[in-house]
Amino acid sequence: MDRTKQIWVTSIFEVFEKMFYIFLEQVEIGGHYDMTAQISFRGPRNGRMRFFFPDNFARTMAMNMLNMEPDEISPVIVEDCLKESANMICGNFLRRFDTSQVFDLGLPQLAKKTGEIQSAPDSDCSIAAAFESDGEGFSCILTFQEEDAVR
């Protein structure tokens, strides 16, 4: 799973640097979240990615992506940016994972759900990572269906 996690983390770095102008560093998993974006994929491997964003970080993403001022950012814009981030990370990861295979991405979904993300060890079916920039950050989990687990 180490290779998979490395590819996934690289995809997350690239999407945040190119589209959100945010330079992340990887940190310990944990922290508060206010919104969850998720996207599923089907193909030689099936699974889904979930992203847990706190409000402030989500608003920063939207402002950076669209070059907007804080008072121009609406909840609808923030939600759309989060869904698009999930879409881009998933697509970027899958083409790095295996460019010769075709994966079908689901449509990204967003839920407003507050909670605390708990640390959990990586397994054959699931890996987690967390990132931070300027004291704000988010966590994410990549899950493969059990029969598709990468060993």
Partner: peptide, 9 residues
């Protein structure tokens, strides 16, 4: 312009 970047797609 897409996230889907497989050679086949």
């Amino acid at each position: 312009i897409t996230t889907e970047g497989s050679d086949e797609r």
